[in-house]
């Protein structure tokens, strides 16, 4: 059984077709890059998988079941923009995750934050943007989930933070779990990807193993992506 399967997904907003016949199969134990420019349906797809929207037609299955209460335990989702209340302190955010998610590993989160020398009494609003991104990622990766969905985890962070984020993803996803990274910033993440999926104008246009694609095209995924989208 696939961890995640999207079957013939269509999504319209009024008469605008945002997703067209999207078919996806995500297996266990993989890191997948879902790559597309802004405004190509990435965010809509994420919302569908997270049960924040329903498809116009087609079916999404998570471990064989439709999105719902159960899938919220299976999926750990890192949104592009923070949803943490900035007036909270770090320790409040930890408490919030602990109350909200049964599979949240508090000890893991505390350890990772300690490695960063982050005082849990700090107010989130007083932290740098990079530090806020790290906190959010730590909270999400400290959930013992089966599928991690990360929306632009590298958006607008400096190179050192980027390395930290990649390492944290690699070291913390549970064995047998999968990670889908939705992004248009490819150069920095491509070395950790098993598979790449290109999405363009609401359609999946390419699915391949990352190494096979490099071999075939004699180029980096980033360059293949640029060539494809001529950007």
């Amino acid at each position: 059984m696939e961890l995640l399967e999207c079957k013939n997904i269509y999504k319209n907003f009024d008469d605008k077709e945002v997703l067209k016949d999207v078919n996806l199969k995500i297996q266990k134990g993989k890191i997948i890059g879902l790559l597309g420019k802004n405004g190509t349906g990435k965010s809509t797809l994420i919302k569908l998988i997270n049960d924040l929207l329903t498809p116009t037609s087609g079916e999404i299955l998570i471990n064989g079941k439709k999105p719902g209460v159960e899938s919220k335990d299976i999926i750990a989702y890192l949104p592009e923009r923070t949803y943490l209340d900035k007036e909270m302190k770090v320790k409040d955010a930890i408490l919030y995750f602990e109350e909200f998610y049964t599979n949240f590993d508090k000890n893991k989160a505390v350890k990772l934050l300690k490695d960063l020398d982050l005082d849990i009494n700090t107010k989130i609003s007083k932290m740098s943007k990079g530090m806020q991104e790290k906190l959010q990622l730590i909270l999400v990766m400290s959930r013992n989930a089966q599928l991690y969905i990360l929306d632009e985890p590298l958006g607008g962070v400096d190179p050192a933070t980027r390395d930290y984020i990649l390492d944290t993803i690699l070291t913390n996803f549970c064995e047998g779990a999968s990670v889908i990274i939705f992004t248009h910033l490819i150069a920095d993440i491509e070395r950790i990807l098993d598979e790449v999926i290109f999405i363009d104008k609401g359609e999946i246009v390419l699915t391949s193993s990352a190494d096979e694609l490099r071999n075939k095209e004699n180029a980096s995924i980033d360059e293949i992506f640029r060539r494809y989208f001529k950007c």
Partner: peptide
């Protein structure tokens, strides 16, 4: 340091 233009496993 990896060269992103060649398969990583190689």
């Amino acid at each position: 340091l990896f060269d992103n233009e060649r398969p990583i496993y190689i």
